[in-house]
Each structure stands twice: as structure tokens, then as C-alpha cells.
Amino acid sequence: MSKLISTLAALLALSALAGCATPSAPLSSAAVAPYQAAIELNGRLSVNYSKDGKRETLSGKFNWLQTANRTDVSLASPLGSTIATITVAPGYASLTEAGKAPRVADDIDSLSAQTLGWTLPVSGLRDWLQGHATAADGSRFAASPAHSSVTTRDGWRLDYVSWQDEGAAVPRPRRIDLARGAVGGLEDMQIRIVIDAPAAP
């Protein structure tokens, strides 16, 4: 009996300690900085998708440069060798794989799907890399650590998983997970983006 009483006393003591534990601080509701038309940053990405019943995975680095009317993206292998360069302007998109002639189309989504085998949503990323998006209902979304997920008007699910400095007055995204269901021959798709150099203030 004394052993049972000792055990119960120990359990009650643990429960009391748990009840006194300091609760974790609430996530910051501070929103990201206002959208900037011109930014430059670099980072890493991994892509996971299914096509024709086969699972494909790849990873690499990227450099991103955008102005008000143009976006230039360079994709590289994990070791730094250039895989492809992309240029997007109103009504025009080009994609050049290493050692090959450029390919041109009206939009980058279809061009990247045809050339790379997976879709790089450049037009959306102009907003998303900065923590902004157009939600499924057409409203504008600005991410914060406390409000970090949205489904976009074109069907991408965005999750802002981590931040350059979560406690900053103006947080900036560090890791963004993108996911979309079956579209255009791709059964499903996930892209993980880690930003190493944030957009300039």
C-alpha cells in the first residue's frame, strides 16, 4: 500500500509541475512588409511530383531577380552548375536549359512543365516569396507567423513554415512549402523553398 501511495504522490507532483509550466509565447501576428516590385534573393528548393504514376524528386539552388515588368530566375544543381535560366515578361516567357537553345512560350507555367517536367509558378512566386498572395476568394493575403497558410486563386496551398526572424517587427519568410493537386498531367506536386538571402528592405 505504501508503494502505491508513493507512486500516486509522485504522479500528483509531476502533474502539478506540468500545470505550472510556462506556456509558450503566442505567435506574432505582425504581417510581412508591403509588397515590393523589385527584389533580389537566392535560396534552395526541392521539388517532389508524380507524373505517369512515377514519383520524381529533385533539388537545387536558385537566384531570383525581379523588377516591375520582368523576372529572371537561374536554377542550379546542389553543386552550383546551371541547370536552366528563365526570363518572364508580360506575354513572354523563355527557358534555356544548359547547352540547349532557348524555348519560348506565352506563359512560364506551361513552358516549365513541357521543358522541365514540373511547373515553376513564377508569376505567383513574385508575390509568394515576399509573403503575399491572392486567396481563393480573390482577397489579398499577407502572411504572419500567426497566419501562415493560404490557398491561392490558382489552387496552390502555401504554408509559411519558418521566418528569417520570427520575432521581428516585420518578419520575412525563410521556408515556404507549396502544394497543388493534379493539373496538366502532374498527379500532385510539392515544392519546398528556403530563402537564404531575404528581399532588401
Rank of each mutant, 00 (worst) to 15 (best):
A101K: 14
K3T: 08
A98H: 08
A18I: 15
L116P: 00
R55H: 15
V32E: 02
T119M: 12
A30S: 15
G155A: 02
G19K: 07
Y92V: 03
A18L: 15
D72A: 09
D196W: 06
R140Q: 11
A179T: 08
I86R: 01
E56G: 13
T67S: 13
M1S: 14
K51W: 12
W163S: 01
V122D: 00
L178R: 00
T71S: 14
G99F: 12
G184Q: 13
D107E: 12
A30N: 14
A13S: 11
L14Y: 13
S149I: 08
E56W: 15
G80L: 05
E97L: 15
A182M: 05
T71P: 05
A105K: 04
G155C: 02
S94Y: 07
I193S: 01
G53Q: 13
A135E: 07
L14N: 10
F62T: 02
R175L: 06
G80F: 02
S148K: 10
R175G: 04
P78A: 09
R103P: 09
Y49C: 12
D196R: 03
T7M: 14
I176E: 01
T85Q: 07
P90F: 05
P173A: 05
W156Q: 00
A169P: 04
G185K: 09
Q36N: 11
S81Y: 10
R44C: 11
Y92N: 08
M189K: 04
A16G: 11
F141M: 06
R140K: 12
L158S: 02
A142I: 01
V122C: 01
L41S: 12
V194Y: 06
T119Q: 11
S50R: 15
A136E: 12
Y35W: 13
V32F: 05
S162Q: 00
R126D: 07
G53I: 10
R103N: 10
L125F: 00
L125K: 01
S149Y: 01
T22L: 14
G138C: 06
P171H: 03
R55D: 15
T87L: 06
P198S: 06
G99T: 03
S74R: 14
L14Q: 14
L95E: 10
G185T: 05
V170F: 05
Q164R: 00
A68W: 06
I176T: 01
D188A: 14
S6F: 12
V150A: 05
A199Y: 10
N42K: 15
I108T: 04
D165P: 03
L116R: 01
A93C: 09
A98R: 11
Q36C: 10
G185D: 03
A179Q: 12
P78G: 06
W163C: 02
Q36S: 11
D107V: 03
L14S: 14
T67M: 05
L125R: 00
K3D: 09
W163A: 01
I195Q: 11
W118L: 05
T119V: 15
L186H: 04
A182L: 05
S24C: 07
I195G: 04
A38F: 02
R157S: 12
L120T: 04
K54Q: 13
A197F: 09
D127I: 00
Q114E: 11
L178I: 02
I193M: 00
G155H: 01
L41Y: 07
S81E: 13
A146K: 10
P201C: 03
T87F: 01
S139P: 07
Q66M: 11
K3C: 04
G167C: 02
